[in-house]
Each structure stands twice: as C-alpha cells, then as structure tokens.
Design a protein around this nucleic acid. Structure first.
Lengths: 80, 80
DNA sequence: TTGTGATTACTGCTAAGGCGGTAATATCAT
DNA sequence: ATGATATTACCGCCTTAGCAGTAATCACAA
C-alpha cells in the first residue's frame, strides 16, 4: 500500500532527476516552499490540490485501482 | 488526467457497490460525514490523509505513475 | 578548510478544512 | 401519495494547512 512516505520519496526522486531544488519546484508548482519540504518528508495532512500541483509539475499521474475499477469504467462509458 | 471529480465518482461508485450510505462510510473510514459528501462532490481541498482513509475503507489503492517510476523502483530496491 | 547553495527548522499570521448538529431537499419503496 | 431513508446544505467551533521570512544546519565542491 502506498504511504505518504512513499509519495515523498517518489517526488524527491523525480525532482532530483529534473534537476530542481525544492524552491524551484515550489515556484514551478505554484505552492509554498514549506509544503514541498513537508510533502517530501511524508506529511500526511497536506491538501490534495497542493499535492496534485506538485505531481503535475513533475508529470506524475495519480491512478486509483481496485477490483471494481473495470466495472466503473464501463458504467462511465455509457455517459457520452 | 485524474480530477477530483473523477475521484468523487469513483468513490461513490464503490460505496454504492458496497451497499453503504455516506454516513456508514464515514464511520467506517473514521472521518466526518461532511467530508464524504464533499469528496464525492469533487472537493479539491480535502486533506490527503482524510481521502486515504476513505479509499482504504473501500479497498481502493492509490498509484503514482510516470516514465521515471521504473527507475525509482530499482533505486528503491537497493535499500534492504 | 572554507564557501556556496540546498535543506531543515521555527515563527506568526491568515484562511479554511474537518467536525457534529440540524434542517431542508431528494430518492425510492410500498 | 406517504413514509422512511439518504443526500445535500448550512451553521458555528476548533484546529491547522499554507505561506513568507528568517535562521540554522547540512552537503558538497573548490
């Protein structure tokens, strides 16, 4: 199961690969520098929108999965 | 790309399939009833830990993906 | 070592998330 | 239609996330 610690490590890894400092990533994401640090540290109480901004800046996609997701996608398909 | 609206619809779908009311899901997840409603409505500013509690209660897994994730998993592997 | 930049830590402030309670509205049986 | 249940909406209260600024610590190169 994915923990906030995992999320932090994933983001840090991507940031380093992109050659960005925490401050640069913060500016790029449109969030405060404190939050980037907190997220990389594994903070659990970050807001979803804040996290998503950072993920988007690093081209990381969020996905949800479960045994029911196939059924959901079918149902969602009917809706066009 | 996954939006908070998508997340809300996915959660609602899973909750219905599980035969739970919003209140029951809230109690089961250990969060307030208001939040379950907000999340299903697509609220962007929920806290990550709150969302994760609800997802866990419904057996929905979060995954992060990017072209760099394979490299990350390798690097992470060295760490045992 | 010494310096330069990055990271970590702390502070005060403001905005707002989470909460239960309650009420109004919607949904769906019978 | 009527009733029972679920959903949506609103209310204050309390807590705290996010923010910039600053300072201290760390890491690595010259």
């Amino acid at each position: 199961m994915l923990t906030t610690g995992d999320i932090g490590r994933i983001i840090r890894f991507h940031r380093k690969k992109a050659g960005l400092t925490q401050l640069q990533l913060a500016r790029l994401s449109g969030v405060g520098k404190t939050v980037v640090f907190d997220i990389e540290k594994g903070k659990e109480t970050v807001r979803l929108d804040t996290l998503m901004k950072v993920l988007a800046a690093l081209n990381i996609r969020i996905e949800l999965n479960s045994p029911l997701m196939a059924a959901f996608r079918e149902k969602d398909h009917e809706k066009s």
